[in-house]
């Protein structure tokens, strides 16, 4: 041990250590990540399982559960509700996020930092707090719970999600481009349309996609704000308590695929710019 580095001309601390057991690190990594991701893998597997209950062992491959899902009226309705909610909340959140980003980027005003922190609160606070608070607020206002209350709730945490990438990109915007457009005769609205928006476009889209995914599978806040119409995650949640069939696994797998695709798209848009 002591003479291990005796024939090495380089100081032992500078000498890259030879990896003693390369398989050890690899197996630990596999084990840890396997433990974390195994449930998802199992869920996907079960959605193809030819068995009436949501459990192992695996009895054979079938697409029956997907077939059932596509014909299930209440799943379809809740899916449409979810899409409506996510689309509206995303639109609202992205617009407000864009305005907020502009205000922060462009102007100095009293309480600017407090404003930024307040905007980020909905993602920092536990959903259950936000949910209860909004429920109390809506009932005080006498607003009946509906898809609209869910939309407002989702837009609330959608704003900071959209704001993040937009503000980051906006802060890289060279002001001289704006001046050049003014100089060539563009009015403020035209400057935004022709120069500023094209510069931040992919950040806006990526922020919107993130807000969409978060809204699409949100449960905690939604539970408090749901009236008669369920969103898809609430529908799944409700079913889990009564009849647990592999149909749920099929729905979950579909959500996973769509959400995953959106996240990948959103990330690649961010990378494209920087």
């Amino acid at each position: 041990m002591i003479n291990q580095f005796a024939d090495s001309p380089v100081h032992p601390l500078l000498h890259p250590r030879k990896q003693a057991k390369p398989w050890l690190l690899a197996s630990w990594t596999t084990l840890v990540y396997g433990f974390l991701y195994l449930p998802i893998a199992v869920l996907i597997l079960m959605s193809f399982n030819d068995s009436a209950i949501l459990s192992l062992p695996f009895k054979g491959i079938t697409l029956d559960w997907y077939d059932l899902t596509f014909r299930d009226q209440s799943i379809r309705l809740s899916l449409i509700n979810s899409l409506k909610v996510a689309a509206s909340a995303t639109l609202l959140a992205t617009m407000l996020g864009l305005f907020a980003a502009f205000a922060i980027y462009r102007y100095q005003f009293f309480g600017k930092n407090a404003f930024r922190i307040a905007l980020n609160l909905p993602i920092l606070l536990p959903g259950i707090v936000t949910g209860v608070a909004m429920l109390a607020y809506f009932s005080d206002l006498g607003l009946e719970l509906s898809l609209w209350t869910i939309i407002i709730g989702h837009a609330m945490f959608g704003i900071p999600v959209a704001l993040g990438p937009i503000l980051t990109r906006l802060s890289q915007f060279p002001r001289r481009l704006e001046e050049a457009a003014y100089d060539l005769g563009a009015k403020p609205g035209e400057v935004f349309r022709d120069v500023i928006f094209p510069y931040i476009r992919s950040a806006v889209i990526s922020g919107a996609l993130l807000a969409f995914t978060l809204s699409f599978d949100e449960v905690v806040v939604t539970i408090f704000l749901t009236g008669r119409d369920n969103t898809l995650p609430i529908e799944i949640w409700g079913r889990l308590r009564t009849d647990i069939t592999p149909e749920i696994a099929a729905v979950a797998t579909l959500i996973l695929v769509v959400s995953g695709a959106i996240v990948v798209l959103s990330q690649s848009l961010i990378n494209q710019d920087s």
Partner: peptide, 12 residues
Amino acid sequence: HTVFQNYALFPH
């Protein structure tokens, strides 16, 4: 009209 120091051409 102005010719800016670093030209300020519209990148897109």
